[in-house]
Design a protein around this nucleic acid. Structure first.
Lengths: 354, 354
DNA sequence: ATGAAAGCGCTAACAT
DNA sequence: ATGTTAGCGCTTTCAT
């Protein structure tokens, strides 16, 4: 802890008396009704007379009773939790997915529980194990690539699994996402059609970011088909920020002053590159084109709108949550869906019309 | 769902055979050892011979056994979950707090569980109730303002509670954060010292964003002390983005062309404003100064560095998690701490030196 | 070093 | 409409 810190003396030293948490029995005694009836009232199950219901609710409220879901879940073997496993919260993409999920699940009894893997298979395996041990009603997990062990856990869990973001590969159960390979191809096509020829690529170094890798593969494949190739590449570690985009762009344009297009692996570094190029007086999109990926709404408002492809983050979250919710509500046709979203390319102002 | 979508036929229709999940008993039978011993092996508790341990581990692995924490938690009344309750994931601030928390808890047995309140007291109450019903080992919750009922729940939960982000008010138990009132005052002082006189304020409309409100209160109070006042204000709904910052800035500068300082409630809209002002050819920071709040690292790389105050998000998360971890490890002195972080003002390039 | 028995707090299933 | 009984799958405690 920095020395820019001080601690006030402890206020009163205790937090809540060390008395045991209240149980159904306490409410039962306080209301003069059997535990079973109390349980029914609290869950709105079965027939309970209005009078009893009132008494029970009053007692529960007065005591400040909070049910113990652990006991409830064990007894009923029903857990209203949905495990949501994502690689990171540090960029804009996964929070939006999570928002989509929350939004849909809020209409149901289900509750999302978040796990973060930091893009490492080991951490993913650990988080998955941890979450499955709480016997959730479903799993929503980013990506299709994982360790055999993680794969086995998901298969054996006996619950609906939705793999999200990516559809280029084999899903265990359900799958919702876009084809990143195709996103790469689409952007390449647009760039080629616009007549750009000397293309540089700027992206993440993370070997575990399979979606970025697939986009790049699709991109490269497509420009090769027309006899072009990637003139230069630049990769980075760490979090994407405007500064990173600037630095990388400067480095690349210094090495290769004759590039006429820069393809970024995400909008954030693309935005940094755009700001840099504008300051340096590049003619955009005339002499130099730029494109990113994701369609980050927050960045609408740059001097020029960056060409990008929307990654449909919120929709993916919503569709995935809907599948889990359908499965949980007993719909047998809900499992095993493969939902492929087709994202739109947004040319913005950094990709010239041909 | 949009029609930009298609569904592939279901792959195989089932997800994991409908066989019941494995129990300790299964491992016990498979390894020829009592359930009790299996339990001991799996938890590394008590003395077990190396030979038995091997056999048990082998059997557990072969079967793909995943322990049932629900049963375990009920039996032991120990739950390794920490409830983390934040208003939103849509801006950059809370994800960073969550990262700080995760980072610290990863060194322990504890696991964060996230709840989102969308800045509404009702949702906060609901999420809190839901999470407390899982009997977590602690609660980390943003802000100091909440309904009486939520307050009561926290007091009665009998677990450590850390209220984060804000220290201007009474904490229930522990508290980690910065004084937003003071952040407002500090920025006001800097602006005054730099000689700016005609100040406009741009911020969020959310009445539930108590921290923004407190910053503004501190700010206004301070400029009044020197006989100045806020010349104009502009508020917005919805998510902060560059575009919002631009629009608001344009509106305000059109209404009040003679403003010489714009104080934004966060860096994102501040960045949008900065981009707008630069395009319009304002002399920054000479004739017009700008400042935001948060110290969002991702935005380093703007044409000019925006003046801001770091909100110590990651540090807050880390300190809060440390308190919970200490309490959980039985340290009786850990509870009731009040940790006040003192954030630094970063003048950047949008606040002139006097 | 290993096992047997008794519950954790609730709910399903069956009374009444 | 309400009560009774028997577990849910583990861990605690006490034997051996």
């Amino acid at each position: 802890m920095s020395n820019d810190t001080y601690r006030r003396a402890s206020g009163h030293g205790h937090h809540g008396d060390p008395r045991r948490p209240l149980t159904l029995r306490d409410v039962s005694e306080a209301s003069g009704v059997s535990e079973m009836t109390v349980s029914r009232v609290l869950r709105n199950r079965g027939d309970v007379s209005a009078a009893t219901r009132e008494r029970v609710l009053a007692a529960a409220k007065r005591l400040g009773y909070v049910p113990n879901k652990i006991a409830g879940a064990l007894a009923s073997s029903r857990v209203n939790l949905v495990a949501v496993i994502v690689p990171s919260l540090s960029n804009m993409v996964f929070p939006e997915v999570v928002n989509g999920i929350s939004h849909v699940l809020e209409e149901t009894e289900l509750q999302p529980v978040l796990g973060v893997t930091h893009y490492t298979p080991e951490q993913e395996e650990k988080v998955l194990y941890e979450m499955l041990s709480w016997r959730p009603s479903g799993v929503i997990i980013a990506g299709l690539e994982r360790t055999d062990s993680a794969q086995a856990m998901l298969r054996n869990a006996g619950i609906p699994v939705v793999e999200i973001m990516d559809v280029d590969g084999e899903a265990i159960d359900s799958c919702v996402g876009i084809s990143h390979r195709r996103a790469g191809r689409d952007m390449a096509k647009a760039i080629i059609e616009a007549g750009y020829k000397r293309i540089g690529v700027l992206g993440t170094k993370m070997p575990q970011d399979h979606r970025a890798r697939k986009r790049l593969a699709g991109f490269e494949e497509t420009i090769r088909e027309v006899g072009l190739e990637i003139v230069d590449q630049e990769f980075y570690d760490g979090t994407s920020g405007l500064g990173k985009g600037r630095e990388m762009t400067e480095a690349m344009l210094t090495r290769n002053p004759d590039l006429d297009f820069l393809y970024y692996s995400n909008d954030m570094i693309g935005a940094g590159g755009l700001l840099y190029c504008q300051e340096m007086g590049y003619d955009i999109p005339g002499k130099l084109g730029l494109a990113g990926f994701n369609g980050i709404e927050m960045l609408d408002g740059l001097p020029r709108k960056l060409a990008t492809i929307d990654s449909c983050r919120r929709e993916i979250g919503e569709a995935a949550a809907r599948i889990i919710a359908e499965c949980a509500s007993g719909d047998p046709t809900a499992a095993g869906q493969q939902v492929v979203l087709l994202p739109k390319l947004e040319p913005g102002d950094t990709l010239r019309k041909h």
